[in-house]
């Protein structure tokens, strides 16, 4: 089966993603890939790649052919030819069918996947769109109205790599590369304080509102630029905390107090602006056990 999809509406940060462009950090390129890896897998694994949509949603028409779609991630409202369908789920589509997805009660990112491969030019082995490096997807840019996407005849099944969503509660962190540069009292306040997700968020990072002023006046200067990993909690020169996400810069010179563990990063990515969050420390061993116990 194969199909051609015509994009009728797309939010400003709707991108094509696959598992990620790994192995390129030494060339100055971070891996990208889904903001919510678990939801990306939940949407389907029989065809390579998929569409990551933001709260603005997406609308498309099957211009020709037929395909099966799977959809997951957060809560969205989906209609097929105007008839509501249940989110998370799957559907079989034929030529002329129109799918419209609009925001629901929670979440920032939703995923659409297909029974066959999404056709896009692989750059360095991946079709994932990097908003930072402007690579992958459709000419390195987000999807826009008028784009036409083709699905292949065949699907390349992908294997599971992502952890499932975690429970509620504080976001679990391991102490970061520069935790020892923060005063013990400040580290304590970091754990006791509540932060808010700000509206300044994208695939590169999520700024937090520090209304308890944990990091106001923090002044840690001249660090040698060093490796960044997704989930790093970086404190800017003006005291703003930023959680670095999938399109993070590969290296950076701002101090990082903590790293959100892999098992909690998908959940963090789905938190909307205004959500209050808190952090709790775990050991690296515990964080790894959580990943293993999920298999």
């Amino acid at each position: 089966m194969s199909a051609v999809l015509a994009i009728l509406r797309a939010g400003p940060l709707t991108t094509i993603q696959d598992e990620g462009r790994f192995g390129m950090l030494r060339h100055g390129i971070s891996a990208s890939g889904p903001m919510d890896r678990g939801a990306f897998e939940q949407a389907g694994r029989s065809g390579r790649g998929g569409i990551e949509m933001t709260r603005a949603g997406i609308e498309f028409r099957v211009a020709s052919g037929q395909c099966q779609i799977g959809f997951a991630g957060g809560d969205f409202t989906i209609t097929i030819n105007g008839a509501p369908a249940q989110w998370l789920g799957m559907a079989r589509l034929g030529a002329g069918d129109v799918v419209s997805i609009t925001p629901g009660a929670w979440g920032n990112y939703g995923y659409l996947r297909f029974d066959t491969d999404l056709m896009a030019e692989a750059i360095m082995g991946s079709i994932a769109t990097s908003s930072r490096a402007r690579l992958g997807g459709v000419n390195g840019r987000p999807l826009q109205v008028g784009d036409v996407l083709e699905l292949a005849e065949q699907g390349t099944a992908t294997k599971s790599a992502a952890p499932a969503h975690t429970a509620e509660g504080p976001l679990r962190i391991v102490w970061g590369l520069h935790a020892d540069l923060f005063e013990p009292l400040q580290r304590q306040k970091f754990l006791e304080a509540s932060f808010d997700i700000s509206s300044s968020m994208d695939r590169m990072g999520v700024r937090l509102n520090d209304s308890c002023c944990v990091f106001a006046g923090t002044n840690i200067l001249s660090l040698a630029s060093d490796a960044i990993v997704p989930g790093d909690v970086q404190i800017l020169g003006d005291g703003t905390p930023i959680v670095l996400m999938r399109d993070h810069q590969p290296t950076g010179g701002y101090p990082r107090i903590a790293t959100i563990i892999t098992a909690d990063l998908d959940r963090f990515a789905q938190l909307r602006p205004g959500t209050a969050i808190a952090f709790t420390p775990v050991t690296v061993e515990h964080a790894q056990d959580l990943l293993r116990s999920r298999r």
Partner: peptide, 19 residues
């Protein structure tokens, strides 16, 4: 993945295979 940086080396590993 092995990544040389200015003053460090990052070793990214599969936490399901090793620690």
């Amino acid at each position: 993945e092995i990544v040389p940086n200015l003053i460090s080396v990052l070793v990214r590993f599969d936490p399901l295979q090793t620690s």
